[in-house]
Structures are given as structure tokens and as C-alpha cells.
């Protein structure tokens, strides 16, 4: 799908508008990949024009 959003925060807001059931998933923790780089917390992260954004489960390391 394609969504107009300048930051991860805006993307999440618009996603929840479209799919209200996503809200609890987003609250439980989710990571976002913007053009291949994974962002776990930084919702201010700018999304470049035409970027590929991917929602991933929030994951841990060792």
C-alpha cells in the first residue's frame, strides 16, 4: 500500500486511522524498516520520498 507520511510517527497515525485494530500492535512494540534500516524506537525518523517502509516485530539482541 502507499501512504503519504514524512515521519514514522505520521505513518503510524495514518495507519491507525485506516486500520484501527493496529493500534494495540503498535503500542506493544513494533520496529520499522525504512529502506532496509531498522528503527525500533525513533518515531521522528524521516521517511524519504518514495521510501520502502516495512513493519517488523520488535526484536532483541544479545
Amino acid at each position: 500500500m502507499s501512504i503519504e507520511a514524512a515521519t514514522i510517527r505520521e505513518l503510524f497515525r495514518k495507519l491507525v486511522e485506516r486500520y484501527p485494530r493496529l493500534e494495540s500492535r503498535l503500542r506493544d512494540g513494533i520496529a520499522v524498516s525504512v529502506n532496509g534500516d531498522i528503527f525500533r524506537d525513533d518515531w521522528n525518523q524521516a521517511i524519504p520520498e518514495g521510501a520502502e517502509v516495512f513493519l517488523l516485530p520488535r526484536i532483541n539482541g544479545g
Binding site: 534500516d37 531498522i38 528503527f39 524506537d41 525513533d42 525518523q45
Partner: peptide, 8 residues
């Protein structure tokens, strides 16, 4: 900061 984007 939130130092995200650690790179694979």
C-alpha cells in the same frame, strides 16, 4: 538520542 539504524 534514539540511535537507530545500526545496520545489518
Amino acid at each position: 538520542i534514539v540511535a537507530d539504524g545500526a545496520g545489518v
